[in-house]
Design a protein around this nucleic acid. Structure first.
Lengths: 342, 342
DNA sequence: GTAACGCTTGAATACCTATTCAAAAAGGAT
DNA sequence: ATCCTTTTTGAATAGGTATTCAAGCGTTAC
């Protein structure tokens, strides 16, 4: 069958139902004034013609696309995959479409935003990706709300939902000290990311507060990925050259899992017997029996829920500035088997 | 700042540049006839006004959105998450937007398709989700190409890219027989999914061909998820009640990993020493040292590439029917540590 | 010098729906 | 039956861009 050039439009339906095009539009717009029998006639005609309303045309007049862009930077980290899934589910449940956009880790999301603005999305969620203050202004001037997830722009007031990363780092430092650790390694993530920076800072600061010497903490660049962390930990502790720390704190679970794999399978060491390991995020993968990872929980469902709520509040309001809130959610210790407990 | 009601349009740019609106449109349409100096003038004016072309309006006239819908059913299976990521990257690289849609596992994707058709996507990719023959007709009549990924509709000619699941199942049966296994368990996935069905069929048929008795294979419903398989395997082999098989074949890696975790951590058994385990898909997670899973590789990158190519071929053509091809990619054994080898 | 041709350009129009405005119909009260 | 209020309805229009059509212009060939 040849591709039909002209689709069925509301006018065709109107013709068949013997009403005006306006009435067809009203039949598909909840809350608009139309008599019941006419609505019924229209819907029957629509069904008969297999009519599907054209959102493109509709968006042109309403200046709303009912679409939210979700921009994600780090699809290598399962945590952000879970976040993306949660956003998709939440937005879908609220009757919105999701325009997903992945940007290369490290590169800026400016181009992506530019792209996305062409599509006149109603709002933007940005997780784990760089962005410049410039594009924030760009969106702001256009009245398009943008909510940051687990990322913020220092020195600028932008709506954001994030976890208390500094507090989490501190809590983990306390937990490991209490477990008897005195020498440490920290596996850092994206060097430019505020998330990793804050977790490391909270962790280190607390240790130094407690009187540890600066060389009690060995810092490792894990690059936020399993493979990156695996190689880095292997380079650091793959041989007996460097003395093992009492505990390793990775700023995310996936890197903690890499560390465990190196210690157990490349060095035949026991975790937590020889070295304790802790992560951050509480991804389901870390909870599995093979890892049983002690970590800090980020309440993803709640955070996503709040981010969407924040976006919708901006959507409903005329004044974007009124809602530049910052929601900081605490993270909670999840005790499992990779840290010793008395 | 208040939300600006009216955006900058091509007309505004035209006014500033001293040209017609048509010329502005041409300046942003590659391959259209416009003198260099005029194009330059337009682009300068556009930049000055922060003009971003409106894809909505453009789509209305061209009847193209440059957007592809990716519908995914099983986001619990990491394999399909990798598939989704690959699609997003591939489509993005070709300058297309991705409208992602997740449907509840088990429920049909008909509603999702209906939704997606409103947005006049140019094409649809469907992975790991049910769909009725009816909506295929619906899309077909509208001239919207739809490519199935790792799923097919028995008895209907629809463009599809999938792995040779039957052949893979057979290959795994051969491998396990050669490794000395004589009693088996099979962990099945989605009962309605052709993928799981075919893998089980290929596996069983080959075993029975080789003369095994039907009760040499114990079948387990794993539900396609880690948790589902974990519980099912625990129920079957968590105690010493039931005799252990020589080998367990899970129709996907994530369930194989669950099986390994049960055997190792709930029963203190050795894999592959006491029981061999094999999966299907070759997800990166299974390659990690903690699992080191022997499996069958699905060449995701290649399959995704081909699916998109198939879609674009349909997009370019007028006649949809000419391209209802079926591309079946072979899967290859990946020998790792969970099957004994001589 | 004229004819023929190709490239540029702008005016006008189509794309499809939501909404406004005014008219018509229906309902209610007296 | 009359007037007033409320609801329903259709005609007309806006929304922003791509494209068509015809005109304008400059070039080349003879």
């Amino acid at each position: 069958m040849k591709r039909t050039r002209s689709h069925i439009t509301s006018r065709d339906v109107a013709l068949l139902a013997g009403v005006s095009q306006a009435s067809v539009s009203r039949a598909f717009t909840p809350g608009s004034s139309l008599s019941d029998d006419k609505r019924e006639r229209v819907l029957k005609a629509a069904q008969q013609l297999n009519y599907i309303p054209n959102s493109i045309a509709s968006s042109l007049t309403t200046a709303r696309t009912n679409t939210i862009a979700v921009i994600i930077g780090d699809t290598d980290n399962p945590f952000y995959v879970h976040v993306l899934r949660a956003f998709m589910a939440t937005l879908q449940a609220r009757g919105r479409q999701t325009l997903t956009f992945a940007v290369q880790p490290g590169s800026s999301s400016d181009d992506a935003i530019q792209q996305v603005l062409r599509y006149r999305v109603d709002g933007i969620i940005l997780t784990a990706a760089e962005l410049s203050s410039r594009v924030v202004t760009l969106c702001h001037d256009r009245g398009i709300p943008i909510v940051l997830f687990n990322r913020y722009i220092p020195g600028r007031k932008v709506p954001v939902v994030r976890c208390d990363n500094i507090g989490g780092g501190q809590a983990m430092a306390d937990a490991l000290l209490k477990a008897g650790a005195r020498t440490f390694a920290v596996i850092k993530g994206d060097p430019m990311g505020t998330t990793s920076q804050d977790r490391v800072r909270g962790f280190n600061d607390r240790l130094f507060e407690e009187g540890l010497r600066r060389d009690a903490v060995y810092e490792i660049e894990g690059g936020s990925t399993y493979n990156g962390a695996f190689e880095a930990v292997l380079a650091a502790y793959g041989t007996t050259k460097r003395a093992l720390p009492d505990a390793i704190f990775a700023v995310n679970d996936i890197m903690a899992m890499a560390a465990i794999d190196v210690l157990r399978h490349k060095r035949e060491l026991a975790v937590p017997g020889d070295v304790m390991v802790a992560g951050f995020d509480n991804i389901p993968e870390g909870a599995r029996a093979s890892y049983d990872l002690t970590t800090l929980d980020q309440p993803v469902a709640q955070m996503v829920e709040e981010a969407v709520a924040m976006l919708e509040k901006s959507l409903a309001a005329d004044d974007l500035d009124a809602f530049a809130e910052e929601r900081i959610v605490p993270s909670e210790m999840v005790w499992r088997g990779t840290i010793l407990r008395d």
